[in-house]
Design a protein around this nucleic acid. Structure first.
Lengths: 243, 243
DNA sequence: TTTCATGATTGGTATTACCAATAGAAGAAC
DNA sequence: GTTCTTCTATTGGTAATACCAATCATGAAA
């Protein structure tokens, strides 16, 4: 096996994995965040300064910032004392990912609705497993807000309050992952529903909410679950025939 | 209220919401995808051409492409006959989002592990609800592959086969949303585990897999669930003390 | 004290130029 | 004619420069 040997299947070298520069920049920032050197609220250097420090063009820095921004890791503000700031987390990104998967026909809307129902049922099961009556202060407050929004015919607020309703249910588990997942699902579903918000008769909504909360308060978790499922079925109906 | 009236609290106009150009470009492409004018495999025009058509600079187009690429909607290839191609969906983006949320301390690793366990238990419940013995061909094949990988001491393959194991379980529900969620969770967990893959004794792993599958085959869903939970507890143990 | 102008900072966009990888086409060697 | 090599056009990746536009602190002016 000399150096001049001709081979059809020659040495297999490492892939070398030539990363593009902006990917390296993204990784550098991610690392700083992971090490805690960059925390939520911190400000990154200005683009020109960052480019100089990393010895790349400002173009590269900007493309990296777009990726970080899109990932929800930083937000950018213009003007003096502006810049790229490390962000807090939010469920928006997760919701966007799911939306994209639906767009690519990788996920069916009907499946997503079913998953949402199952997720919320699972959450009720989790609360039940605690074997203690949960603190329903937040849900009571939410119900009051719902009544106000309905009375005021403020559909925008109705949507916001509905989002908070499911958020508060997820909060009862104390599991942050479940909270974010729930928020993402709710946000996405509401995106698809959009204008259809007002379709449901107010009294049906309020009755469902009231009986759900009362079931929980009385420790009737299975009945609460059933009420929730029935409500979600009503909301989801007619969603997946449209796409 | 004449035109010359001076007011400290003047007319409140619409926010105008001045979108940045690259955001507009992203939206244009997203719309085309949503309308089906762009389907997986299709090729976008070259950057220079796209810039000319949309009457923006190539910089703007590139920043938009970074966003689309990062969202998993397109992949970019260099060289002649290269370009940006509309992608198939994958669970990688969802996994990345969860990872970022952990990095921002918005989600605790322990919560994510618990959520994963709950998700898989829920999936078993779903299979049980079908009241028919599921098709276990894929899981049987997976077991055989696991045995091979263990015998060959091929840890990379062990990881890949493990990912497929959970994927196949999720597939049994026929719910695409659950499949993607499961894949994302698995991928993320494996990212955190990394080197710790070989820690588990091979016979423990294989025994767990075998008894899980046999439980399913015999319709003992609750026992299968219990076996799975025990296995996941073993895998997850020691994960969340480290971060 | 309040209001307004100003200027410095910083992100957003445009333009130009060149490098580097890729795949097909053309040509050379057999 | 077949196979291999080389060439070349295409296209993404990077750099550099210039200018616009928003923002906020500062200080002047009323």
């Amino acid at each position: 096996m000399t150096a001049t040997t001709r081979r059809t299947e020659p040495l297999v070298f490492e892939p070398v994995k030539q990363n593009r520069n902006f990917e390296v920049v993204v990784q550098v920032v991610r690392d700083k965040m992971m090490r805690g050197e960059l925390q939520p609220g911190d400000k990154l250097p200005p683009e020109r300064e960052l480019a100089k420090q990393l010895d790349v063009s400002r173009n590269v820095v900007r493309e990296a910032l777009r990726i970080l921004e899109n990932a929800g890791l930083v937000v950018t503000k213009k003007g003096a004392y502006g810049g790229a700031f490390v962000s807090e987390g939010s469920a928006t990104q997760m919701s966007q990912v799911l939306s994209d998967l639906i767009m690519l026909n990788a996920i069916k809307v009907s499946d997503l609705c079913e998953a949402r129902t199952l997720l919320l049922e699972m959450i009720i099961d989790q609360i039940k497993r605690r074997e203690s009556i949960p603190d329903l202060t937040a849900l009571d407050a939410n119900l009051a807000e719902t009544e106000e929004a309905v009375a005021a015919r403020d559909s925008a607020r109705r949507v916001a309050v509905a989002r908070d309703f499911y958020h508060q249910i997820a909060e009862l588990t104390g599991n942050t992952a479940l909270v974010y997942t729930t928020d993402a699902q709710t946000e996405l579903t509401q995106t698809f529903l959009q204008f259809r918000i007002g379709d449901m008769a107010p009294e049906v909504l309020l009755n469902s909410r009231r009986s759900f909360i009362e079931h929980l308060r009385a420790g009737r978790f299975d009945e609460a679950k059933e009420e929730l499922r029935a409500h979600l079925d009503r909301v989801h109906t007619g969603l997946w025939d449209r796409s």
